[in-house]
Simulated assay, not measured.
Amino acid sequence: MICRRTGRLGRVTLNRPSALNALTLDMITLATRTLREWLTDSAVELVVVDGAGERAFCAGGDITVVHGAAEGDQRIAKELWRAEYELDALLAHYPKPVAFLMDGIVMGGGLGLSGHHRGLRIVTERTVLAMPEVAIGLAPDVGGALLLTRTPGLLGTHLALTAGRIGPGDAIACGLADHAVDSSRLPEVLGALERGEPLSELTYPAASPLLGDGPWIQACYSAPTVTEIRKRLRARPEPAASEAANAVDSASPTALAVTLEALRRARTMTDIEECLVQDYRLCSRFLDSPDLAEGIRAAVIDKDRAPHWNPASHEEVSAEAVASYFEPLPEGELQLPPRPCGPTTR
Rank of each mutant, 00 (worst) to 15 (best):
A130D: 08
M131T: 08
P132S: 03
A135M: 13
A135D: 14
G137T: 00
D141S: 09
V142N: 12
G143K: 09
G143L: 06
G144E: 06
A145R: 15
R150Q: 15
P152H: 07
G153Q: 05
G153S: 09
L154D: 11
L154W: 09
L154S: 15
L155H: 11
G156P: 12
T157G: 10
H158I: 04
H158S: 12
A160I: 00
A163I: 01
G164E: 03
G164Q: 08
I166P: 05
G167W: 02
P168F: 00
G169N: 10
D170K: 07
D170H: 09
A171P: 10
I172V: 10
G175T: 00
G175D: 02
G175S: 04
L176H: 06
D178M: 01
D178C: 03
H179C: 12
H179K: 15
A180M: 13
V181R: 05
V181P: 06
V181T: 05
L186S: 12
P187K: 05
P187I: 00
L190M: 08
G191N: 14
L193M: 06
E194Q: 12
G196P: 11
E197R: 10
P198K: 01
L199G: 05
L199C: 01
S200E: 14
S200L: 11
E201A: 14
L210G: 03
L210E: 04
L210C: 04
L210K: 10
L211C: 07
D213P: 10
D213W: 12
G214R: 14
P215R: 03
W216R: 05
I217S: 01
I217E: 00
Q218A: 15
A219V: 02
C220Q: 14
Y221T: 01
Y221I: 00
A223G: 11
A223M: 02
T225S: 13
V226P: 10
T227M: 02
T227F: 05
E228N: 03
I229F: 02
I229W: 05
R230A: 13
K231S: 12
R232H: 05
R232E: 01
R234N: 14
R234S: 13
R234A: 15
R236P: 07
P237S: 02
P237G: 07
P239G: 06
A240M: 10
A240F: 04
A241N: 13
A241T: 04
S242A: 15
E243T: 15
E243D: 13
E243P: 03
E243N: 11
A245K: 07
A245Y: 07
A245M: 09
N246H: 11
N246R: 10
N246A: 11
A247V: 10
V248W: 01
D249R: 13
S250K: 15
P253Q: 08
T254H: 03
T254N: 13
A255K: 04
A257W: 01
V258W: 05
V258F: 05
V258L: 03
T259R: 07
L260T: 01
E261T: 12
A262G: 08
A262L: 13
A262M: 15
L263V: 04
R264N: 11
R267P: 06
T268W: 06
M269H: 15
T270Y: 07
D271I: 01
I272G: 13
E273Q: 15
E273D: 14
E273S: 11
C275H: 08
C275D: 12
L276D: 04
